[in-house]
Amino acid sequence: MASQGTKRSYEQMETDGERQNATEIRASVGKMIDGIGRFYIQMCTELKLSDYEGRLIQNSLTIERMVLSAFDERRNKYLEEHPSAGKDPKKTGGPIYKRVDRKWMRELVLYDKEEIRRIWRQANNGDDATAGLTHMMIWHSNLNDTTYQRTRALVRTGMDPRMCSLMQGSTLPRRSGAAGAAVKGVGTMVMELIRMIKRGINDRNFWRGENGRKTRSAYERMCNILKGKFQTAAQRAMMDQVRESRNPGNAEIEDLIFLARSALILRGSVAHKSCLPACVYGPAVASGYDFEKEGYSLVGIDPFKLLQNSQVYSLIRPNENPAHKSQLVWMACNSAAFEDLRVLSFIRGTKVSPRGKLSTRGVQIASNENMDAMESSTLELRSRYWAIRTRSGGNTNQQRASAGQISVQPAFSVQRNLPFDKPTIMAAFTGNTEGRTSDMRAEIIRMMEGAKPEEMSFQGRGVFELSDERAANPIVPSFDMSNEGSYFFGDNAEEYDN
């Protein structure tokens, strides 16, 4: 993207840094990872977990959730003011799984939030270390993106479920800051804005008074975040219109849905970061690795190297396929839920299948599930090659597409044709070009129609051997075009429920 120079890199967003050079960025990201790792080690000690239990991804998720809940100030305040039966607002906890007599047992633990905050700050040299908290939120978000298709949420806001490739980060909490905003897809931002506008339509006082002023500035800020994701002048001009509207209503909703559809071809720039579970960072720190000293990046080879040398386990339900569970977590670790499966298959070195073909449910185990038949197995999170994460949407291309997802959002900077089903997408653009945004709409449609099938995206960008740390010898991959490109292809993934 041309304006790259004016933006802070995501590592800076990730670490609240002012302008830093590459070495400083690597050190501050490393410091953040160190903090998460030290916190995780301490929690495993508190909970008396064995090494194996500490490497269980379900335990990692519970521990991450506990610290996120302990620092969720708004919710904590709300819980104190609106006490609900049987919930102690000062405590947080969740299921911890232990191996007892050759069987997995679930144990519900409860801790004072104050105590968890103390352990977290102690692991982070006394700081609140917001960057580390956001990092864990993005890992949870990436896992949700890989596990669930947001059909219901899309339909509720009037969008087409086939636009799911635009929904990265749709389950990120509001408090995820600049680093969170960077990884949100165009569809996620559109959905947040539509929800806001709908509230304004239904509630006369939404934009009024002292609160209304705050609401208005939040609305304009979200519009600017979305505008910054678009790469064409016409899309940005249309966002200006939406932002400046005196009284946002149905016309703005129409414009936003139009823009979301246009992003299936004229893709937005959305950041991709490899955020790993805390149970990967903990053992690495415990083994003596100093992330701050060595430096770390979320968008280069580092996460690949770390996963190459990590042992992570997962509980497996009786009829689940461990290899499929591994694929789910591998995609989440690489922030690749909406990437082209052919690119992923090449990088991973084994075939990556669409969601609907995987015999696996989510990673988390519900409290009512029976533990008797639970097994555990090693997650295979290694890769054959590594590639640089991208934040450009890439230019655009036609490809055989599917009944489910009709476009992709690249996660890796790797040369390819970008699949999208042009006739299906263009069919949504018939007729409606009147109104105050008509010239911009016409211009956007013209650009979409001009998108050429034979153009290559990320020209000359390749993948790298894991021994090639400096990215000196790019390998331009070859793809098996007979395979499906979309992950949520004609899909039956479970729906995400809060």
Rank of each mutant, 00 (worst) to 15 (best):
M137S: 07
E64A: 06
V463I: 15
Q231E: 08
Y496H: 02
Q415S: 15
L344S: 13
P419N: 03
V329M: 15
A286S: 11
M66L: 05
Q149T: 09
A263T: 15
F479G: 09
D16G: 15
S407I: 03
Y281A: 11
P95M: 07
E81Y: 11
V408A: 15
I36L: 09
N319T: 15
V155Q: 10
T6A: 00
Q20A: 00
A27H: 14
A179H: 05
M371V: 15
N498C: 02
S297T: 15
I41M: 08
E220I: 04
I406F: 03
C164Y: 02
K48I: 11
G54C: 09
F479N: 06
S392H: 04
G460V: 00
H272D: 03
G249N: 05
T433N: 00
V476D: 00
G450K: 00
Q415P: 00
S407Q: 12
N202I: 09
F458P: 01
R416F: 00
I36K: 02
D340K: 02
I301L: 15
F458E: 02
T134G: 04
E465S: 00
G180W: 10
C275L: 03
F458S: 06
K87R: 11
E494C: 06
S345W: 04
T130L: 12
S383A: 13
L379S: 08
R38G: 13
S482G: 00
F291M: 11
D240G: 12
I301C: 08
G295D: 14
R8D: 01
N224H: 14
G460E: 01
G93D: 08
L61W: 02
R221K: 13
G86P: 13
S69V: 06
G126H: 04
Q398C: 07
I265S: 11
K351C: 08
R348F: 04
M374N: 10
T62W: 04
S50E: 13
P419W: 04
A337Q: 10
E192H: 02
K351I: 01
Q308L: 15
P248N: 01
C44F: 04
L133H: 01
E484G: 03
K351N: 11
M189V: 14
E455Y: 05
Y148R: 02
K91Y: 05
K31N: 11
E107M: 07
S359G: 04
G300D: 06
V414T: 15
Q459I: 02
L61T: 13
S467A: 01
N250G: 12
G94D: 13
G249Y: 03
R355Q: 10
G356K: 12
Q42R: 05
A451V: 10
Y296K: 03
M32N: 15
L154C: 12
S402V: 12
D72A: 09
N205E: 05
R216K: 15
A27F: 00
S345A: 09
G158C: 10
L276C: 13
G268H: 11
I194K: 09
V299S: 07
T92R: 04
E115C: 05
S326C: 12
A178S: 11
S287R: 15
M1G: 07
E80T: 13
F464H: 15
K87C: 07
G94C: 08
S438A: 14
S392N: 08
E244M: 06
E369R: 04
E46F: 14
L68Y: 07
K7P: 00
R236F: 03
A427K: 00
S287I: 06
A411I: 00
R461K: 10
K90I: 14
G393P: 04
K305N: 09
L276Q: 13
R246P: 08
D72L: 06
F412K: 08
P283I: 14
K198C: 06
S359T: 11
S377D: 01
R8A: 00
E434R: 02
D240R: 04
L328C: 02
I388E: 02
E220H: 13
Q398I: 08
D421C: 05
Q311H: 07
G54Y: 07
E375L: 15
R156F: 01
I257G: 10
T232S: 11
S269A: 14
S60M: 11
R117I: 11
G187F: 04
M66I: 12
D340W: 03
S310M: 04
H140R: 01
E339F: 02
I36F: 15
I445C: 15
S383N: 14
T6C: 02
H135K: 11
R348Y: 07
D51I: 12
N417V: 10
T157P: 01
R208P: 02
D128R: 06
L108A: 07
T147M: 09
R19I: 02
S407C: 15
V67M: 14
E380F: 04
T360A: 11
G94K: 12
V109F: 10
E294G: 13
N368P: 10
R152D: 02
G200C: 04
I194V: 15
R99L: 09
M136P: 02
L61H: 09
E252T: 00
Y487A: 03
M105G: 03
V242R: 09
K113Q: 13
N483G: 02
R348S: 10
I347K: 08
Q122G: 01
I475H: 02
C275F: 07
S287Q: 10
K7N: 12
Q459M: 09
S383Q: 15
G37H: 04
G228M: 11
T45I: 05
M374E: 02
R156W: 05
I197L: 02
R221F: 10
K91I: 02
E494L: 08
A234C: 10
N21H: 04
I33A: 15
S69L: 07
I475L: 00
N432W: 03
R391V: 02
R117S: 13
L264K: 13
S359F: 02
F464M: 00
P277K: 04
V190P: 03
M481G: 12
G485D: 02
N144R: 00
L344Q: 10
E46W: 08
R348L: 06
R75P: 03
S217W: 09
R261N: 05
L341D: 08
K31F: 09
M137R: 02
L143H: 13
E375V: 08
A123M: 04
G37P: 10
R267K: 15
T188P: 05
G356L: 10
M105L: 14
C333N: 05
Q235E: 05
I63R: 11
G228W: 07
V280Y: 04
K98V: 10
R389W: 11
A278S: 12
Y40Q: 11
A337V: 14
G5A: 15
Q231D: 01
T437E: 01
E454G: 14
S392D: 01
S245N: 03
M167E: 03
V463D: 00
V190D: 05
S28V: 01
Y78Q: 02
S383I: 00
A22R: 14
V299E: 06
N319A: 08
A387T: 11
Y148V: 07
A129R: 14
Q459K: 13
V100M: 12
K87T: 08
S377C: 09
A332M: 08
F420I: 14
L307V: 11
G300V: 05
S141G: 12
A179Q: 06
R355D: 10
S407E: 04
D51R: 09
L193S: 15
N319M: 01
T360R: 05
K351H: 12
D372Y: 05
E339V: 11
A471E: 01
T350R: 04
I316S: 09
N492R: 13
A411N: 02
K48P: 04
R213E: 12
L108F: 11
A337N: 10
A182G: 12
E18G: 07
R38L: 14
K90Y: 03
N321W: 10
Y289R: 13
L298A: 02
G177F: 12
P474M: 10
R389T: 05
L172P: 06
A2I: 00
L47A: 00
G460Y: 00
D16A: 09
L226V: 12
I194F: 05
D240C: 03
F464E: 06
Y313P: 09
R156Q: 13
L193K: 08
L47I: 12
T146K: 07
Q20V: 01
Y296G: 07
A401K: 14
D439M: 01
E210A: 05
M191Y: 06
R361N: 07
H324G: 09
R117C: 14
R38A: 09
D302M: 00
E320A: 10
L61V: 15
G485L: 07
D439H: 11
M440Q: 12
S297W: 05
E252L: 05
D145T: 12
R152V: 02
S245W: 02
R267T: 00
M426L: 15
R382M: 09
I257R: 00
P318F: 13
M371A: 15
L328P: 05
S457H: 04
A411R: 04
M448Q: 15
F39W: 15
R389P: 01
Q364S: 11
E469W: 02
S170Q: 09
P303F: 03
G282S: 11
Q241S: 04
N473H: 09
D340G: 11
S269T: 15
F458I: 10
L266M: 09
